[in-house]
């Protein structure tokens, strides 16, 4: 269903589109199932908010699944970025704590660390996605 008629050149699936590689077929099937599940899925961000930003780009859809798919996909992207930033933060904290000579291995992991997201961690995480972050000139 999905992905059959996009006109995308696929060198692997030469002739019969979907029925090419089994793993690709599985992915497409998975996506189709997901689309069905989106029918009665309540996204984090209300549909109206997502639809407003889509409308501001000229995108108008009556199908709530499309709006929800976009909503979930964008949030997943942000989530991935946040995940990377968290890893960055953790490694940075570990290296900082490891640098001093007074190293008490038992203390650090057990202690409840408070992680704060800063641009120091966010910038390299975004750089992995090809996004360069600079401080806006007039940001307060």
């Amino acid at each position: 269903m999905i992905g059959t008629n996009f006109g995308i050149y696929r060198p692997n699936s030469s002739s019969s589109g979907v029925s090419g590689a089994p793993e690709e077929r599985a992915a497409v099937q998975q996506l189709s199932d997901f689309m069905l599940q989106l029918e009665d899925y309540v996204p984090t961000v209300p549909d109206a908010v997502t639809a407003h930003f889509l409308n501001s780009a000229g995108f108008e859809s009556n199908d709530p699944r499309i709006v929800r798919l976009i909503s979930v996909a964008t949030q997943k992207f942000i989530s991935d970025v946040a995940n990377d930033a968290l890893q960055q933060c953790k490694t940075r904290c570990n290296t900082q704590s490891n640098l001093p000579g007074t190293h008490t291995p038992g203390q650090k992991p057990t202690k409840d660390r408070k992680y704060t997201l800063t641009m120091e961690d966010l910038a390299p995480a975004l750089a992995d996605y090809g996004i360069t972050v600079r401080k806006a000139q007039y940001f307060p």
Binding site: A57, A73, Q75, I78, V81, A82, M119, K135
Partner: peptide, 25 residues
């Protein structure tokens, strides 16, 4: 995360918003 810089939060919010618009476009 337990806390976030305002700058980071605004950056991510802006990214989310512009990404929505960009996907729509």
């Amino acid at each position: 995360f337990d806390s976030v810089d305002k700058e980071c939060l605004e950056t991510l919010t802006e990214m989310l918003q512009s990404m929505l618009v960009e996907v729509g476009q």
